[in-house]
Nucleic acid binder design. Structure first.
Lengths: 341, 341
DNA sequence: TTGTACGCGTTATCAA
DNA sequence: TTGATAACGCGTACAA
């Protein structure tokens, strides 16, 4: 990559580097002829300013870091899609990090990011993460941060989430209106904000219809099929087994469906399922899977916009009031033969 | 992000920046006491070397660029997962770009990358791309490049692909052994290497069983459902409609299944389908979908390893022989009640 | 209108 | 053992 520098141009044209710089930068005080000369030479030899030199000079990289639990997860890859779209339009690069749901790995990623190189950070917390002091510290040191989806009350910055309470409430209510009375809830790590909100929504719906809440019906699962099998076995061996299940995330919903199929449980006759998911294709294939679709693309777009605003506002030091933006989920009922709300 | 610099340490400790640098870097000629002093101060104030300054100095960024058609595509997000895993372990950052299957967008991304800031490039070509002169130019200027999945004969560098010929051959053969004789092939952009190889494999399988090849049975599709509907209509309105379909990619396979369902075509009774896919969860749900699973994670890992080797070898200027690495696909037959091979 | 000098943070070279 | 200086590429304040 032997690229030409401003110095090369200056030497070739017998000018000073500053004159070349001015000519390229379109500054005012410059002889039109000189300017033309420089620009033509630059074009001819395909001059590109070295972004790293600029970064060093301006102390900003025009790139943002994104930490997600897993890239290879339809929800997050859609979010990243949205982030990339906005960032691209505003001239920023996107640097990807994965926490793999691990607190330690997230912590290492934060350390990398702390040594700057990115102008801001978008993060969705790992399932293991129970302590966000490192993130707070980074924020207090001045790093613009926006949290999305899996957020924390303990940090005061912009947050973009979907309405998990409402989503879980509506989904549970849908099951109840279908006639289900014994509804299980299989969800993710109990540390996560999304989990807490969804459990609240689930319980609120049960309360509304005066259905007793049974803790044994609430299961926290990781994404392994062994764990799902264990959970399903536990649920089915209850004296009073469930007739409906509310799952969250593509993996849990699909894993649950697949496990039930291997056990020859018919859906929705024996058990009805609602899942939070973004795998529209998959839900097309499985008519029994009513889904709560999350606004993943918008979440990425909104988060990126907010972060870039923060980054660019920072220089003009306008004080910012942090807000939490809640995006709406959408309940899509696949099997209209059963019920509709 | 007011981080401490080497200069700050020097000032605070009444030393020169070079001494501090040496102490931190663990160089030899240094007084143990001074060294200890510096290191302790650095730790206390959480000193981190500025990676951008290092990049400028060493003229390398320790980051690699990745251009994919769409992040939000299970195949590519899995590839990126593999890339990220390897890069992380070897101390490189991953910067993501999307071409959205557009030649123009790919071209703009290449321009960004050409102005260095990344030490190497991993790319899977856009569906529209028919001219890779820009990529070749970049490569000739010294940028280490590895192509994966959607490659081109016109450029001489490492390539990592899956065995698309074999995959399509085996899949087609599977349909033939199931008793299908009129097999359609719905595939992606005709420009793509993967498309060409798959069509070859499909034709080779038909030839082996002396089944005539009918061009009307080969359809090039984009990912829109309108286009899929059109194609299915065309196929079904043939005097001799297909009794089997070979699709490629998750979207085409799922789109095809969904469209057939809306037309009340039963699967596999009326039409049997084989799809290249990575949506294992989705294929779990649809027993009729026999799939050719592509080694996406390995593809990402292998590509990243090769690229990083190229980057690090470059400095020692060992001549490199470029190779094409072919990874094996795996045929997974979901509906064992029909046939097995 | 153009050139000189400096600084961004770091390391390597050379002198002390 | 340590310090001063140059260099990476760029932009800009200041001098000419």
């Amino acid at each position: 990559m032997e690229l030409i520098t401003i110095k090369d141009i200056a030497k070739a044209l017998n000018l000073s580097t500053s004159t070349v710089s001015r000519a390229l930068r379109g500054s005012y005080e410059i002889n039109p002829d000189t300017k033309k000369l420089v620009i033509e030479y630059a074009e001819k030899y395909n001059y590109r300013p070295n972004p790293i030199a600029l970064s060093l000079k301006e102390n900003k990289s025009r790139s943002i870091g994104v930490i997600v639990p897993e890239i290879d997860n339809p929800f997050f890859s859609q979010v990243i899609n949205g982030i990339e779209a906005i960032s691209y339009n505003r001239g920023y690069h996107v640097v990807i990090f994965q926490s793999h749901e691990s607190f330690e790995r997230e912590s290492i990623n934060l350390k990398h990011i702390a040594s700057r190189r990115v102008d801001g950070l978008l993060i969705s917390l790992a399932g293991e993460t129970n302590d966000i002091s490192q993130l707070k510290e980074l924020h207090e040191k001045g790093m613009p941060i926006v949290l999305f989806d899996r957020v924390s009350d303990e940090i005061n910055t912009h947050k973009v989430i979907s309405d998990n309470f409402e989503g879980a409430f509506t989904a549970t209510e849908h099951l109840i209106r279908e006639g289900r009375r014994r509804i299980a809830h299989i969800t993710a790590s109990p540390y996560l904000s999304i989990t807490k909100e969804r459990v609240k929504g689930y319980i609120a719906a049960l309360n509304k219809y005066e259905i007793p809440v049974d803790k044994a019906m609430i299961k926290y699962s990781n994404y392994s099929s062994e764990n799902m099998e264990l959970i399903i076995d536990e649920l089915l061996s209850e004296t009073n087994p469930p007739d409906g299940i509310l799952t969250v995330s593509d993996r849990l919903a699909l894993g649950c469906l697949a496990t039930l199929k291997t056990k020859n449980i018919t859906i929705p006759e024996q058990i009805s399922i609602v899942g939070f998911t973004n795998l529209k294709a998959a839900s097309m294939l499985e008519p029994a899977l009513t889904t709560v679709v999350q606004p993943s693309l918008q979440m990425g777009q909104r988060s990126a916009e907010l972060l870039l605003d923060l980054i660019e506002r920072k220089s003009s030091s306008i004080p910012t009031t942090y807000q939490t933006f809640k995006l709406y989920t959408e309940l899509i009922i696949r099997d209209s033969s059963i019920v509709s709300i």
